[in-house]
Design a protein around this nucleic acid. Structure first.
Lengths: 329, 329
DNA sequence: TTGTAGGCGTTATCAT
DNA sequence: ATGATAACGCCTACAA
């Protein structure tokens, strides 16, 4: 890259247009009185010098950076890209840039990140992660929105009702004739997984049916292996409620490998509604979350709280709806 | 959130430890001489006041922000999450935070973004987008790495050889007995799509075979529709070389709907090697790019150039390799 | 070894 | 309507 021409500052503009920096600042921010002629002169100087205000200096003074932090477990998990996209789609037009952080659910990394961002005058956080709690967040003097999981009653949140969603998913499976449903559960330290499992447990208990649990980790490969075990050991299973879509897809592959027909011999139900589910064979029946909508809502809440300091805490529970496709008979 | 306690500054630390700010700064940056006892005192004060250096002030002075910008078309495109992850995995441990930007290939947005970031003292860019050219970048006084596509010989890049990869993919299809191969092409304004198409055209020409082109846009839904048309109009097609995996998956769905058996009646070949390809039925045969590796390499190049100003331009072409699965016979 | 003071580029207050 | 000037929080000559 060529030799770095030094960038014009507000002082250069002032000099060139023969006014003070204060005046330049006024035309820049359209604040206070400034004579039409002066404005013209200043604007011309800005044009000539290709002047762009320095955002760092601005941040230092204003104690705001027009930037928000978005913490997610892992962008590689197909649930998150849409969420990220939605957040950005709201933030960018509002003049905010969003900084993503893949936490891998590592608490120390998360804390480190939050501290680093705080010292950059970040204006707020959206947190879709499972390790951070009230104690880590309450000292922040910027708004925080919990997304996808509820963190604390004092922190605004945008979630879905995982419990009820799971109950409905199970009811649907029963209504389609499943008699012997197993649950491929997600990691027990993840809130959504806990809720979905709880629903399974309660439904089975209520119906006085035997519980059949298999531990998964929300990932494909392992889900496939675990399902193979499960199905070999319990050939009478006729329904599998997976903790998320990714695992449901793993289960589908497992069934395929074992020569078990879905949904004829085995119904498989997912949870999430990621796009992936439409491309597998048979197409995945799942409990669909309004992913994009969730991201959008969280971003809007955050923005509102950035603009107006002490809005009340709000908890939003967005509706899920069952997506009937072909993996449940 | 509770009332905002004002944050401690370096001045507070100086006061509390009875030294000057210069000394505090010295212990902070481990620079210059400072007596062991003084250091102790200062460190204690820092501890007590929970002092964290203000990164904005630091940036203003140092003209660097320990931040890089990463421009991609759309995180929702399953090719990118891995790339993003790789970049972050290199950048974060090196003390840099990366800011993602979804450009949707909109030039104005991209320019706006780059300008905004420049005025934040961003330290470099990785660009995996198709609209930005030399003219937009050469004035930047920070390093830029082109990723996934070559921008200009004067800008370091990390790419794969799309042309040769496509040729090899086609050779493979022929070797498996395909006689009549069509190409589902990507958007013609995208570099990778152009290269892959060029390869198809040349191979067909060389073999004196008729060209069968269908325009796609690298997306699933449209690919499915286009493939339905293509296959209905040309029932003698026995091989389809898709411009990317996502479209290949769309094609797979189309074949499925039309009752055409893959790979028995129709071989489908993808390009990219995204994880998705493993979950469809039949599993997608594809030309695999070292996606993570590409991101890693780009990040490393950038880092090197940030640390050392005038390293030579480097162009890296990473190897692709065919992933034989079950969609090509 | 430590302190003083000027500057990084803006904004906002207070004069004029 | 405009201009000086003191912050914002940090760093680094230069002095001491």
């Amino acid at each position: 890259m060529e030799g770095a021409r030094s960038v014009a500052t507000i002082r250069d503009v002032a000099r060139k247009s023969g006014v003070s920096v204060a005046t330049v600042s006024r035309v820049l921010n359209e604040k206070g009185y400034v004579h039409e002629d002066t404005r013209k002169k200043v604007e011309k100087a800005i044009e000539i010098l290709q002047y762009k205000p320095n955002n760092v200096a601005r941040s230092l003074f204003k104690k705001t950076s027009k930037t928000i932090g978005f913490l997610i477990p892992d962008i590689t998990n197909p649930f998150f890209p849409q969420l990220v996209r939605a957040v950005e789609d709201v933030m960018y037009p509002a003049g905010y840039t969003t900084i993503l952080f893949n936490s891998d659910e590592n608490l120390n990394h998360e804390i480190e990140y939050i501290e680093g961002m705080t010292s950059k005058y970040i204006d707020g956080f959206i947190i879709a992660s499972n390790t951070l709690h009230w104690e880590h967040l309450h000292l922040l003097n910027v708004p925080v929105i919990a997304l996808d999981r509820h963190i604390d009653s004092r922190i605004s949140s945008v979630v879905i009702d995982n419990y009820t969603g799971a109950v409905e998913a199970l009811e649907f499976m029963f209504s389609r004739g499943c008699k012997n449903i197993a649950h491929l559960e997600g990691p027990n330290y993840i809130y959504t997984a806990q809720e979905r499992k709880k629903a399974y447990l309660n439904v089975m208990k209520e119906k006085n049916l035997p519980v059949l649990l298999q531990q998964g980790n929300y990932e494909l490969e392992q889900a496939m292996i675990k399902t193979m075990h499960l199905l070999s050991e319990h050939p009478n299973i006729d329904g599998l409620f997976a903790g998320n879509d990714v695992m449901a897809i793993g289960a589908l592959k497992a069934a395929h490998k074992l020569g078990i027909q879905v949904p004829k011999q085995l119904s498989i139900m997912g949870f999430d509604g990621i796009e992936w589910g439409e491309t597998v064979t048979p197409e995945l029946t799942t409990m669909q979350q309004p992913i994009y909508e969730m991201g959008r809502k969280a971003a809007e809440l955050l923005l509102a709280r950035i603009h107006e300091q002490d809005l009340e805490v709000e908890h939003h529970i967005l509706p899920v709806n069952i997506k009937k496709r072909n993996s449940v008979k």
